[in-house]
């Protein structure tokens, strides 16, 4: 408390006006000046503005550019999977991403489904070789990172949407079926969410219906299609 307002005022009144110098030396000089040139004229506002602009720029840009890249960790898929090729071979999403008899959705197929075709290696790709040697032969399920993985609190009925409302897979999942490579999986370091849930855009802006899979996106569509967002339990468990 020893350092009083009067002192502060004096200092600000007397601080240096070396606005032409670069930041670092300016700071140093300021330090010196304020000690020995206490009764010089007031020109500190300019310095303040400079600092303001500099720190604004740094924070603003790092918030937009650095922050997103720090926020997400990138994980490579165990091996590349060519959706386009498989869709062409099997005829559609449903042949691998199927419903079980009780109406639940099986999601990513298990090895047992894959080896219906891949009894032995079919093609010559390295990826298939990895699949065969590392997973099928060792009896391990492939630890895919699932782009559309919703958190545990979400209940999503594929049956209601695909069978009931006759929705197309693309509406939510985009054109993943036409992809030939798997993009890296980005996981939010804080939430553990897949980046695809929030959307690629850091503001979460979406252009296509499949760009984002947040609750608001579900609610928006429900509101349009059913006239109600639905009660909590409709989508939460």
């Amino acid at each position: 408390m020893g350092f009083s307002m009067s002192e502060l005022k004096k200092k600000t009144e007397n601080s240096s006006s070396d606005t032409t110098e670069d930041e670092e030396s300016g700071e140093q000089k300021t330090g010196v000046h304020c000690c020995d040139k206490k009764d010089k004229g007031d020109s500190g506002v300019g310095m303040g503005v400079l600092f303001f602009i500099a720190s604004f720029a740094i924070c603003f840009l790092s918030g937009w550019l650095l922050f997103p890249s720090l926020l997400y960790s990138k994980k490579e898929q165990p091996f590349n999977f060519n959706h386009a090729l498989h869709v062409a071979e099997t005829g559609g999403c449903e042949s691998c991403h199927a419903f079980r008899d009780d109406g639940t959705f099986a999601g990513v197929p298990k090895n047992s489904a894959c080896i219906e075709c891949h009894e032995s290696q079919l093609g010559e790709t390295e990826d298939e070789a990895i699949f065969m040697t590392e997973y099928v032969e060792k009896g391990i399920e492939v630890p895919w990172h699932i782009y559309s993985k919703q958190p545990d609190c979400v209940f999503f009925s594929h049956a209601a949407h695909v069978t009931g409302a006759k929705m197309d897979c693309v509406t939510c999942h985009g054109h993943i079926g036409e992809s030939t490579t798997m993009k890296p999986y980005q996981e939010n370091r804080i939430t553990g969410y897949s980046r695809d849930i929030w959307g690629e855009n850091i503001w979460g802006v979406k252009k296509n219906s499949w760009d984002r899979m947040k609750m608001d996106d579900c609610a928006e569509c429900h509101q349009e299609e059913t006239g109600s967002k639905g009660a909590c339990f409709q989508c939460h468990k």
């Binding site: 419903f99 008899d101 009780d102 109406g103 639940t104 209940f155 009925s157 049956a159 209601a160 069978t163 009931g164 339990f233 468990k237």
Partner: peptide
């Protein structure tokens, strides 16, 4: 208590799957 709502969801899944809607 949720009246075991997830069981309702499971029943609906089955109903949808069997094209009985809800």
């Amino acid at each position: 208590c949720s009246f075991c709502y997830h069981r309702y969801q499971a029943a609906r899944d089955r109903a949808y799957h069997e094209e009985r809607r809800d």
